[in-house]
Simulated assay, not measured.
Amino acid sequence: MIIVLNQNDQTTIENLKRHFGADHDVFVHQNRVAVQGITAEDLDDAERQAAVELIDQVPAAVQGSRLFHPEDTVIKTKHSLIGGANFSMMAGPCSVESLAHVTKMASVAKANGATVLRGGAFKPRTSPYSFQGLGEDGLKYLRQAADKYDMDVLTEVMDDEHVEMVAKYTDIFQIGARNMQNFSLLKAVGKTNIPVMLKRGMSATVDDVLNATEYIAAGGNHNIMIAERGIRTFDNKYTRNTMDVGVVPVLQKLTHYPVIIDPSHAAGHTEFVTPLGLAGVAAGASGLVVEIHDDPAHAFSDGAQALKPDEFKTLADKAFAIRELLASQPVQQEKAGR
């Protein structure tokens, strides 16, 4: 149950915590108190009288629920605002290949409106014989390239043992699709105050990914964004995965966390990345995370889905134009009605 109180009713909040805290999970967000496993009958007279509203059905992912936390979460980093009315472009190579190359890609990303430089130093690959990343050296190169162009770093952390090391270099942890339900890893990043991009697992339902966010939030870290990167369906003949564009408004209805679209992993082929990315923007996503490379044929990983610099410019220009159009639409409609 969620008990909605008058603003600043700290007395009732403390009473509820004392009343139920020993036997139930109790979560507080401003004037809303969520208590797992109770009904209105469990409240005493004073608690019922203090309530403005009682919401019977508490979602399993209570801390991520809009019922509990109605306003959008806006994640603030040194160079970016992610969520709410903001639109964030994130771009970079799939893998960090060298300092010179990731710096060159940072320049391309920055020139086209990106504020976050993405790149993998530890790469979970389908085959154990594929390139696995440069490790900590890759993190150092990524950090240097981002700092040169006043950008934030987004990079994947693969297990809880690496959290402390990756935290020294990144501004945003990425949890990959294969690790979406690696609960020890989710708990570890939840104990930090570093923002987390949680990628939806390739076979995960909406409830699966929302419940995964709770493992992060339960540790005290509420700087969470959810990335849609395509799911596995019965047909992967033409694209690597099936991008669920519809999940953007669904998640925005259910949760306050920003929703990011990763068209590169959804498409798997360069020619489809831009249209899928633009579809995500048109659906209302809070940002895009895109793989770019100046020589995809010789990329260390996933070159087939990387955009060349001119292709990324086309995507970025159109994405920002669509976002501007969406933002201005209510104003234009209002003028038309006058």
Rank of each mutant, 00 (worst) to 15 (best):
V4T: 14
I13V: 15
N15A: 08
A22G: 00
D23E: 15
H24W: 13
A34T: 08
V35M: 12
A40I: 07
R48G: 00
A50L: 06
E53S: 10
V58T: 12
G64V: 09
L67Y: 15
L67I: 11
F68C: 04
E71S: 12
E71M: 10
V74W: 12
K76W: 11
S80G: 02
L81E: 07
G83M: 06
A85I: 05
N86R: 05
P93F: 08
S95V: 09
L99S: 15
L99R: 15
H101N: 10
A106L: 06
S107K: 15
A109L: 07
A111I: 01
N112K: 05
G113R: 07
T115F: 10
G119H: 10
A121F: 12
P124N: 07
S127P: 03
Y129I: 06
G133N: 07
G135F: 11
D137A: 15
G138F: 14
Y141A: 12
Q144A: 14
Q144S: 10
V153L: 13
E164Q: 12
M165R: 13
V166P: 07
A167G: 04
K168V: 02
K168C: 03
I172M: 14
Q181L: 11
Q181W: 10
F183Y: 15
S184D: 09
V189H: 13
T192I: 08
N193M: 10
P195S: 09
L198E: 03
R200E: 00
M202I: 13
S203G: 03
S203T: 13
T205H: 14
V206K: 09
V209K: 12
E214P: 12
N221S: 09
H222Q: 14
A227T: 08
I231F: 10
N236H: 14
D244F: 10
V248Q: 02
K253R: 14
T255M: 04
S264C: 03
H265Q: 02
G280L: 03
A283K: 03
A283C: 00
A297S: 05
H298W: 02
Q305P: 02
F320K: 12
I322A: 02
E324V: 03
Q329I: 10
Q329G: 00
K335A: 00
